Simulated assay, not measured.
Amino acid sequence: MMNTIFSKEEVNTGRQMEFDYLKGIFMLVIYLIHAFQATMSQEDSIIRWIYMFATMSGAAIFIFVMGIGTAYSKNAAPAEFVKSGIRMVIYQYLNNIAYVAALVLPYPFVSGKFSETASENLRFMVKLYIQYTNIFFITGIIYLVLALLKKLDVKTIWYVLIGAAVSLAAPYIYGIPVNVPVIGYIMKLLIGDADFVSFTPLYFLSYALFGVAFGKMIRHVKDKMGFYKVFAIPAIAIVIVWWGLIFRNYGSDISEIYTVLSDAYTHPDFWHVAASLAHIFLFAAIFFFIEEIHRKNDRLWEPKNPIARQLLYYSRHISKYYALHVTVYFVVFGLNGYQSFQSYQCWLLALLSIMVTELMVRGFNYLSEKFFVRN
């Protein structure tokens, strides 16, 4: 059967659209979850369920797909990876400056009615976000690691083995103190425990390494329908076992499940990484089958459904959407006196951020295209 699915030659070299859809739909999930988190608001039960669902993919999707992308990139030289890594780290701290500016901008308009809670919230968030490390930072660091592996001409199997080793070792390395000035701070960003470290490269490196291996493998797939039919079976089995164990261990205690999955999301061990990859693979298979229903023989097929087109647009410009959407929340949070919102207000804020961010991204892309065309 494997001979009918795989080819010795690289035949599947086009865009893997199912992963574009996957990134796009999770951008919508991010909008909603961050509406609560960025405004320090209490999550309602629906958001808790959505978040628990998202912990099995979320950031892991973007890092895994990034790994796949390096196997398809036309600029796959180690030097290009280094440039990408440095650029992403710079983006992180430029993004932090924008976050802090968005937080502070409303201050003159609300300072007259400042409460003690508002003052504490503002001080905490400014201190947090000036040093913040998130998806841009970990992506940058991972690019640097991939550049080294590429330079060493590491074979595909070693990406799998190193990825597995990292996911096994990460819980034992995490938070090891390094009591050396500057170096200790840098190590905290990479493997440490701090309020301003949202995700650590240590824990998410394995997703990228598995993504590289997956990308190299899927390039040899000549029958994607057969590929997903065969490999969806173990993915479904792992997903069922994962949730079966979760509910067996914690029953109907949603608060405890939420706490456990939240911690496992940012600090995944080997079993969580395997379960996350199974979820990602299953979601990708679902999108592939949905796409195949509408696709004919045209390899340049583009969806006519506006929702599908928007999801693909999210995917193509995901960095811009990710960078800009939180700034909307911070400005509104500040105008509300740095006080949390009620649940329904956060849902409305998510809708507001979707609309405002869309205008910003579309406007930026339009002006950029006109500028480059003229020059």
Score class of each variant (00 low, 15 high):
110 V>W: 14
110 V>A: 06
111 S>D: 06
112 G>I: 12
112 G>C: 08
114 F>Q: 13
115 S>R: 03
119 S>Y: 06
121 N>I: 05
122 L>G: 04
123 R>C: 07
124 F>N: 09
124 F>I: 00
124 F>E: 11
124 F>P: 00
126 V>I: 15
127 K>A: 14
127 K>P: 00
127 K>L: 12
128 L>D: 13
130 I>H: 09
130 I>E: 10
131 Q>W: 13
131 Q>G: 00
132 Y>H: 13
132 Y>G: 06
135 I>D: 03
135 I>G: 01
136 F>T: 02
136 F>H: 09
137 F>A: 00
137 F>M: 01
138 I>R: 01
138 I>Y: 02
142 I>P: 02
145 V>N: 08
146 L>P: 10
147 A>R: 14
147 A>V: 12
149 L>I: 12
149 L>P: 08
151 K>H: 13
152 L>R: 14
152 L>T: 07
153 D>T: 09
153 D>M: 12
154 V>E: 05
155 K>W: 06
155 K>P: 02
156 T>I: 05
156 T>S: 14
157 I>P: 00
157 I>G: 02
158 W>R: 11
159 Y>F: 14
160 V>C: 10
160 V>S: 03
160 V>W: 13
161 L>T: 05
162 I>K: 05
162 I>L: 15
164 A>N: 07
166 V>I: 15
169 A>D: 07
170 A>T: 11
174 Y>C: 04
174 Y>P: 05
176 I>H: 10
176 I>G: 07
178 V>D: 07
178 V>T: 11
179 N>D: 15
179 N>R: 14
181 P>D: 12
181 P>Q: 07
181 P>L: 09
182 V>D: 00
182 V>H: 01
187 M>G: 06
191 I>G: 00
192 G>W: 04
196 F>I: 03
196 F>G: 03
198 S>R: 11
199 F>Y: 12
199 F>V: 15
200 T>G: 00
200 T>A: 01
200 T>M: 02
201 P>A: 04
201 P>S: 02
202 L>W: 01
203 Y>E: 01
203 Y>W: 08
204 F>Y: 15
206 S>W: 06
207 Y>H: 09
208 A>H: 09
209 L>A: 03
210 F>C: 07
211 G>K: 06
212 V>D: 01
212 V>S: 01
213 A>R: 02
213 A>M: 06
215 G>N: 07
216 K>R: 15
218 I>D: 07
219 R>G: 06
222 K>H: 07
222 K>Y: 04
222 K>G: 05
223 D>L: 05
224 K>Y: 09
224 K>S: 06
225 M>A: 04
226 G>N: 09
227 F>N: 03
228 Y>L: 02
234 P>W: 12
234 P>N: 04
235 A>I: 03
235 A>M: 05
236 I>F: 15
238 I>Q: 08
238 I>G: 05
240 I>M: 14
241 V>C: 06
242 W>T: 14
242 W>Y: 15
244 G>M: 08
244 G>P: 08
244 G>R: 09
245 L>A: 04
247 F>N: 00
248 R>H: 11
250 Y>C: 02
250 Y>Q: 01
250 Y>H: 14
250 Y>N: 03
251 G>T: 03
252 S>Q: 08
254 I>A: 11
254 I>N: 04
254 I>T: 10
254 I>H: 04
255 S>K: 13
